[in-house]
Amino acid sequence: MAAVTASQRPDLLEQARDELGVDPFGQIGDGTHLAQPALYCASLAHFKQAGSPDGTMIAGHSLGELAALVAGGALDAEPGLELAVIRGRLMEEAAEVTPGGMIAALGGEEATVRELATNFGLTVANDNAPGQVVLSGPLESLGEARRQLRADGVKAIRLPVAGAFHSPLMAGAAEKFRAALDEVEFRQPRLPVFSSTAAEPFADPRQGLAAALTEPVLWQATLKRMQGEGADTFLETGPGDVLTGLVRRTLEGVEARSLAEPEAVHA
């Protein structure tokens, strides 16, 4: 990610270093306040490396909504990075006040996992694909839920994140982030940009981006809505191919590929 960003978007890398005082890629594992700006920069750098493809609609998963709004023409890249810096810092601060985390439940029945989340006071933070739900909440409750999931034969993986993201524990961060969003100019996008928490095109990016800190990522519903609107080819332009895999698991009769994969780039 660092090499692609340095070659494709050196302007964003320089801005990130200036705002953070360090190279976020060099210390990406040291906290959300560094990881989110790094991922934002990498997303736009890989988008440029992929040829900045122009489709009929666009979506981003969680933090990826900021890069999607830039790619869709609704937001300039520089203030988008400023927002990524603020978002990461606020979410890290919220996590320090109320420690929490996230676990991925893989392979279980969705209804069963949701019932378990309710029983342990957890939030369904990400509905990513059939058989892949992410739970968010206090660490003690997550530990108890993880043990129960495993006892029920469900694979439960603790995610390497610093807080209970996409849950009510981020309410303080969401309020402050909304204040920052009010200072940024947004334009009408040149194509529909889907909110992954509303599963529909952004009506008000400021409201949607702020709400995303406490509301679940409805990735399955977002993909199905996009397919219903006519999308039959899904191109992942950021680093990696995780979202491509989620598309393939969720939708039938569509093409999905990552432009970050050498075999896809040269196909």
Rank of each mutant, 00 (worst) to 15 (best):
P79E: 04
P205N: 06
E65V: 08
A59C: 07
R248M: 07
V265F: 13
R147M: 11
A171R: 10
I58A: 09
A199P: 01
L13T: 00
A267E: 13
T244P: 02
V124L: 14
A45V: 05
L209W: 03
F47C: 04
E236H: 09
L106I: 14
A231R: 00
Q36I: 03
P239K: 00
R190I: 01
G31K: 07
T244S: 08
R17C: 07
Q27P: 00
V85L: 11
P216V: 12
V247A: 00
V265M: 12
M102A: 02
A38S: 02
E65Q: 06
E175Q: 15
L223M: 04
A125F: 08
G80F: 03
Q148V: 15
L142F: 12
S258W: 08
L181C: 08
E65H: 01
T244G: 02
E92W: 08
A16E: 01
H33S: 14
K155V: 12
D182L: 13
I86P: 00
G137K: 03
G64I: 04
L122A: 05
T244V: 02
H46T: 01
I28E: 11
D54K: 15
V265E: 13
D232P: 04
E200Y: 02
A256L: 07
S62T: 07
G73H: 12
P138A: 14
L218A: 09
P130I: 10
D204G: 10
F47T: 09
G163T: 05
G60Q: 06
I157D: 07
L209F: 05
L259N: 02
G88W: 01
A203M: 05
M102T: 05
D232R: 15
L20F: 09
A260E: 10
V97A: 12
R17K: 13
E261L: 15
V154F: 02
S7F: 09
L218C: 01
A221T: 02
V242Q: 09
M170Q: 06
D11L: 11
E144Q: 15
H266W: 11
A199M: 08
A260L: 03
A111V: 14
H166D: 03
L246F: 11
G26N: 04
E92H: 08
R114G: 12
E65K: 04
R257A: 13
V97I: 14
E252N: 13
A151P: 07
G253S: 11
E78M: 09
V134C: 01
Q220D: 01
R190S: 13
A180L: 12
G107I: 08
A74K: 02
E261M: 11
A42C: 01
E110D: 11
S195R: 09
A117N: 05
